[in-house]
Design a protein around this nucleic acid. Structure first.
Length: 283
DNA sequence: CGCGCCTCCTGTGTGC
DNA sequence: TGCACACAGGAGGCGC
């Protein structure tokens, strides 16, 4: 499940391999992969052919590739998406959805996605920041992230703290795994009401979010020096460092209590019953 | 308009 | 061994 650190790893790898290259063909092999591109696959191919990739940018879990036309390719990996660089003669992946070839005849860019929650689209004039993702907040690693504004907005919400962490319009890049990890570090249960959090408590939580994301970026950034830009949720290089996520029935690394698993927002949440007591009243 | 639930999708794991 | 089903969850969309 790619969250900010995984997407940032992909961004760095992609930037290295596609910047400055000119697209020769854009082939859509599964319509769902461009469902956000309303004009369809013929238009997708037409507006991308002959365009040169200028850079690879990221906002939260979204990527976009600014082009010399002023447009941009927007990409989201969803649950299982991968952006791979592959030699032209490499066999098609089972779940290959979109293939780009370049005029230099070098490695292809392939969008592979088993569950098709992810996809690509073209944003007209979106090279600077695509309108389609302008509602996504800055991530906490962004130098322009506004800590004070985040603190105020978080405490102004009438919801639960984990829901707020997962709201990409409030803070971006955090998914289920890193939300649980940050909450564990902050010793907060995910159902704590946001409007009852103190300003220092929110500041501490934000600090833990930054730490978790930063450590994961460092862990992931060590392995992209090769041709394959690979994001695979299963192989998570950060797995060994997890304190809460996926550790049901295992002892808390801090106090030894048995980590519990709860259904929350239609997904699993993991927390320590001793370090992260539930609030008396659920919001 | 804020909030929260539903849905999209398919390979994998589990229990009978 | 085979079948049925739960599970993984990001984010748009919609209902209240």
């Amino acid at each position: 499940m790619p969250e900010l650190p995984e997407v940032e790893t992909v961004r760095m790898g992609l930037a290295k391999w596609v910047t400055g290259r000119t697209i020769a063909t854009a082939e859509v092999l599964h319509p769902r992969a461009i469902r956000r591109h309303l004009p369809g696959d013929a238009h997708f191919a037409a507006v991308l052919t002959g365009r040169t990739v200028l850079d690879v940018s990221r906002r939260g879990k979204y990527l976009w590739l600014p082009l010399d036309s002023g447009d941009a390719i927007i990409g989201h990996l969803g649950m299982s998406g991968q952006l791979l660089m592959q030699p032209a003669d490499a066999e098609d992946e089972k779940h290959l959805r979109i293939r780009f070839t370049f005029t230099d005849g070098g490695p292809q860019l392939r969008f592979v996605d088993q569950r098709t929650f992810g996809g690509l689209s073209v944003s007209e004039g979106g090279a600077e920041l695509p309108d389609e993702i302008s509602h996504i907040a800055r991530d906490p690693m962004d130098p322009l992230f506004d800590d004070a504004a985040f603190n105020a907005r978080m405490r102004g919400r009438h919801t639960e703290v984990k829901r707020a962490l997962l709201d990409q319009t409030l803070i971006s890049g955090v998914g289920n795994i890193y939300a649980d990890e940050a909450l564990w570090r902050a010793k907060l249960h995910g159902t704590r009401p946001t409007d009852q959090l103190t300003r220092p408590a929110v500041a501490r939580l934000l600090g833990h979010v930054r730490d978790v994301l930063g450590e994961a970026i460092v862990a992931g950034g060590t392995s992209f020096d090769e041709l394959y830009v690979n994001v695979n949720g299963e192989s998570g290089y950060f797995d060994r460092s997890l304190n809460a996520y996926g550790r049901e029935n295992e002892p808390c690394h801090r106090c030894g209590a048995i980590i519990r698993r709860e259904q929350f927002m239609n997904r699993s949440s993991f927390s320590c019953p001793r370090c992260q007591p539930k609030p008396r009243k659920t919001a």
